[in-house]
């Protein structure tokens, strides 16, 4: 099982969708909603596509739709089985 940490997620979010200049992403953002962080549904789709490319973890669009915070996304990612190569 892959272990994706908050630093990995932070890097992916910034690479995929930039960062809101008014929000400090280096702080504790685990429980701040993606909406407050400035990431919309497209930003999350782009980020989950990147997670799949890098970690082989395929999240369904439906599951992502219910995810509201970085903590919830990390829990979902880390609970998802990587398909055997």
């Amino acid at each position: 099982m892959a272990q994706l940490g908050i630093d990995d997620l932070r890097r992916i979010l910034i690479a995929c969708a930039g960062e809101d200049d008014s929000i400090d992403l280096t702080g504790d953002i685990l429980d701040i909603s993606f909406e407050e962080l400035g990431y919309d549904s497209l930003a999350l789709m782009e980020s989950t596509a990147r997670i799949k490319q890098e970690y082989g973890i395929d999240l369904s669009d439906d599951a992502i739709g219910d995810v509201e915070t970085p903590r919830a996304l990390l829990e979902l990612v880390n609970a998802t089985e990587v398909p055997a190569a």
Binding site: C16, A17, E19, D20, D21
Partner: peptide, 8 residues
């Protein structure tokens, strides 16, 4: 432009 707008 803010960096949020660059990837898109």
């Amino acid at each position: 432009l803010p960096s949020r707008l660059l990837p898109q």
